[in-house]
């Protein structure tokens, strides 16, 4: 009986603990997270997981189909994401980067946090004027490990010597086409 009670208590504890780890609804409209604000026409679900201590992950239909990655307040010498492969570490954010160099930083960070397996191509690099200074926006495209074509948009900027990034991606088939106007609006409303 004593063993049964112990077993039930443990099961209850595990259930309660798993209840703590859940997605959080982010409503459509003006969103403000860790120093980044933007407006979105549709709701997002914020994941309890992340890919680095400066990141917040969100999705609408499932992480494999679309993702919003927010990178907030990365100081000099730190990387945007965790490095799963020590041979190709995610590059650190370094002092003195010019706006166009942020594109390469975001691109190689995404490649390296995926173990170097993605062949990401970027396009349409352009400056974005923000209150904090000049950032950059660009489009990106790659095939994921299942062979699905992923398209996306990103914006990156520096404020008070800290890096802020928004990366929006979705499977081209169906999802990117449906969300691309909202993605553009989110990039254009990005503020830090």
């Amino acid at each position: 009986m004593k063993t049964l009670t112990r077993y039930c208590s443990l099961s209850l504890l595990i259930l309660l603990m798993s209840g703590c780890v859940s997605y959080k609804l982010i409503n459509a409209g003006e969103v403000n997270i860790q120093g980044i604000s933007f407006s979105t026409q549709e709701a997002w679900s914020q994941s309890p997981h992340n890919i680095g201590k400066y990141t917040t992950l969100m999705t609408r239909d499932g992480m494999g189909l679309n993702q919003l990655i927010l990178v907030h307040g990365v100081p000099y010498g730190q990387a945007m994401f965790d490095s799963p492969n020590k041979d190709i570490p995610v590059p650190p954010f370094s002092q003195g980067l010019m706006p166009h160099e942020l594109e390469n930083l975001v691109k190689s960070s995404l490649i390296n946090t995926n173990g170097g397996t993605l062949k990401i191509s970027t396009d349409n690099l352009r400056p974005m004027q923000l209150d904090s200074g000049t950032g950059v926006a660009f489009d990106l495209e790659y095939f994921n490990q299942s062979g699905l074509l992923i398209k996306g948009k990103s914006i990156a900027a520096i404020k008070n010597d800290q890096l802020y990034v928004m990366i929006l991606t979705a499977a081209k088939l169906e999802y990117y086409e449906s969300y691309k106007e909202d993605f553009s609006a989110m990039v254009n409303s990005f503020r830090i």
Binding site: P99, H100, D123, N124, L125, R126, T134, V136
Partner: peptide, 10 residues
């Protein structure tokens, strides 16, 4: 070039 806006910025 698709990045002409970036180059023109400089």
């Amino acid at each position: 070039a698709s990045d002409s806006a970036m180059v023109k910025f400089y």
